[in-house]
Design a binder for these strands. Structure first.
Lengths: 332, 332
DNA sequence: TCTAATTTGTGCGTATGTATG
DNA sequence: GCATACATACGCACAAATTAG
């Protein structure tokens, strides 16, 4: 069966003729999942092409998930669906509620024939490294949400430089890659500054900073703020056994602790927004309603997903700080 | 007994096919400790291989401590404990907040050496079909959350029968597969029945059933309940332009509409749990706090993930209705 | 165990045509 | 007309995996 055909001097690049040949062979049924393709050398010799030309075609097909390669063996048909034109590798830290908005707005801003595959590294270096290594060459774009893992750069460097995008947090060593991220330090600092008149109702500001998972920039931004003011301050990592005092305002980063805090407040018969202030991180639907409204500092995840899609579609190599909003509500 | 099998022209190195054959023979019980393996020459002649190819496979097995060689005699099975990293294919409908608990409890209940890959079909038949077709043969287990898609069974049938598990909702045509699911019909019906004394405070029950994505069982359960009582009832698909009336109790399936409802209530100066009742579907952290507590009907996603992991680890071919709880709070 | 042939993977250099400003 | 960037195409060298004899 002659699967590939390449002609000289027709208005179509040779590598595209090869791609098209494979697509045609699939639709006509001549090529089935698992079938072996002719080797690079065989095609090169038959049509007097450069090895690179054939490789270019096969790389495109591989990134679209249509074929796969096995070193030392050859190329094999992996999928019979040719309507996917591009594939995106999206590596998150973990699955949580905030990913929902980000992911759906990202998807909706892309073309229909772009497939997005999601992975999670769970803050494990081994997982992070394995997922990236296993998927080299299989995608057109790699979007990576880094974590506080050493060697991050070393792993990412294995990927083609111009296909990598950094998401949500940026490290100094990754500055060379395009990115859309939260500036946790400035976001916390500026939001607190903006809320200063309301904060002045309180005597002491308390940061609840429980996890190693939280970006360090948050702590830095908080420290910067309290140095620039005369507030009493405290950083704690848990609410266990803590007695709330009138005049304290809490900056809470996760929703689990937000619940605990509100319950404690009620137990001690303290009034939110008067005796105790609360600022919560990351906006969610229900915070608009809870206790007459919880003041939040949050990035706009919808915007982030939308802008990320634009960056990829327009091949923009830029650094974008995603917009952060302070939403003042009853709790402050 | 034919322990070894090697095929020509498939995307798997021949020596790996031999290793895999031995692993399979062990897990299926065809090969026991002390059993002799076919000799190198026997395998070489049967499958027309090079001696080295067979040797490479046996060397790998020897290095892993699975077989041992006795000079002049042959190869013998030394250990039946093979640690292969198992792979799980997990196909969700879409990414949303409720998947978080389910997924993390599932992961945490599995062994460390099990890798779970997540996919989303987004209620598209093409996507559903492609994802399953492309990944045939690549995973040890396939966990599938079906949707209201026709031909579901036909697609799933392409997978090995004993590796498929159904998640969250079960259809009649899929009854032959093991499953852990929500019984939406009974859950709604029984929860409403259980809440009957509180519901009697109200005159009319309203189901807000907006999306085609919501399982039909919910509607059926609701209809069954209202037929068994004398409640006035109504099914609406949106709160737009709706004026709330005192004595109405709302069953709300999604959180977006829950917010809208609570806001409307406040605008009309109606009191929750007195003038207007609310029952919300799917428990989340904040519902414990909102408006003094929102009554919820919800399955236990933690339990679901944990039980699913058990099913897989113990190879249980069972049908399990996941536990559903009615949590009565201030809003009813 | 060694040698050899074939395959993919990767990096570097070069040349040409085309579009853009 | 000139400079530049980009896509296309070619050639070569070496590495690593697979398989054969």
């Amino acid at each position: 069966m002659n699967i590939i055909s390449v002609e000289e001097n027709i208005g179509l690049p040779k590598y595209k003729q090869i791609v098209l040949s494979v697509e045609k062979a699939i639709t006509s049924g001549n090529l089935k999942k698992g079938d072996a393709l002719p080797s690079i050398n065989a095609i090169k010799n038959k049509f007097f092409l450069s090895r690179d030309t054939v490789l270019m075609a096969f790389n495109e097909l591989k990134a679209r998930g249509i074929i796969e390669s096995i070193v030392g063996k050859g190329y094999y048909l992996k999928s019979e669906s040719i309507d996917v034109t591009q594939k995106v590798f999206l590596l998150f830290d973990e699955l949580n509620a905030f990913k929902e908005n980000l992911y759906t707005s990202f998807l909706n801003s892309l073309n229909d024939n772009i497939q997005v595959d999601i992975f999670f590294h769970h803050f494990s270096y081994d997982m992070f490294s394995k997922l990236i290594s296993d998927n080299i060459g299989s995608y057109n774009y790699y979007i990576i949400m880094p974590a506080n893992l050493s060697q991050t750069k070393k792993v990412i460097e294995k990927l083609p430089f111009d296909k990598v995008y950094i998401l949500d947090q940026i490290h100094d060593e990754l500055k060379q890659y395009p990115a859309i991220y939260q500036n946790f330090e400035d976001d916390i600092y500026n939001s607190l500054k903006r809320a200063i008149t309301l904060l002045n109702k309180y005597k002491k500001i308390v940061l609840l900073f429980p996890e190693k998972k939280q970006p360090q920039g948050m702590l830095v931004g908080f420290q910067k703020f309290r140095k620039s003011t005369n507030f009493q301050h405290e950083v704690i990592n848990s609410l266990d056994d803590r007695k709330l005092e009138k005049g304290e305002v809490y900056l809470v980063l996760d929703d689990q602790n937000l619940i605990v805090l509100i319950k404690k407040m009620k137990d001690q018969k303290l009034t939110i927004g008067k005796d105790i202030g609360i600022i919560s991180y990351n906006e969610t639907l229900l915070k608009e309603i809870v206790e007459g409204g919880i003041t939040t500092i949050s990035t706009d995840f919808n915007q982030m997903g939308k802008r990320l899609a634009q960056m990829i579609l327009n091949k923009e190599r830029v650094h974008i700080e995603n917009q952060n909003d302070l939403i003042i509500r009853n709790s402050l």
